[in-house]
Amino acid sequence: MSKFSKDISKDEKKLIRQMFWRSFTLYSAVTPAKQGASGFEYSMLPFINKFYKKEQDKKDAMVRQMSYFNTNLAMAPFVMGVTASMEKQNSESDDFNAESINAIKTSLMGPLAGIGDSIFWGVLRVIAAGIAISLAKNGNIAAPIIFLLLFNIPVQLVRWYGGQLGYTLGSNYIGELYEKGLINILTKAASIVGLMMVGAMTSNMVKFDLKWNMVIGGKTILKSQEMLNQIFIGLLPLAITLLCFWLLKKKNVSINWLILGTIVVSIVLALMGIV
């Protein structure tokens, strides 16, 4: 990473650090109409104040950066870095098209939100939570701290270096990744880890045992759970999970109905003495 940041001046590095800290508050005042606009503005203010000397230019930049903004938080500093580098170019040259700043910003936030959500929310958080849950179930008090560290160390590193990378490479970098088609490879690799973890957690966390046994004349002739285990361990939890997935994806059943249905069915099965 250091080879990219060589040509940034000391002053600019300080601005990027300020941006990093301010970007934590991106969604502090999130609104339906403009999402994280105020947080984006807040993170951009150090740059705007530094780059623009004329009062009117400063106001224009502030209006520009108060536009709709919504992306994954881990990816936000990268977008901010790119935007800030473009604001600098705009302040230095007369013929720079200021509208392109928002165009690039808007085109970056969509795909980056998708990548960030699936990698950090879908995979990293799931891994961190999965490990922490198994620790907590064994009574380990450090579980929540481990959860927060496992999730936040990678995320904060990406945020820290993402800002510098975005600022140095400007708008070329993400375009290059796209042109080379490397985004798809990255997303696929992350999804493989995620899916394997979800499979592992299905086995670890979804529990469903049959209590009902076939009894004839006071003698138990068939223990249903034992029989099922001989066919395949965890057959019922796996089937239930796949059923939920199918209902969610193909039948568009809402999550609230699915949760409610699970509770009702469990109680009914308990009343019938099956589980």
Partner: peptide, 25 residues
Amino acid sequence: IVHGLTVAGNVLPAVGMAMLMKILW
């Protein structure tokens, strides 16, 4: 009923897993 709810508590992670699968599948 409390027993049924405990059973539900053990099965409900399936819904969570299904939602993650919707993202990743």
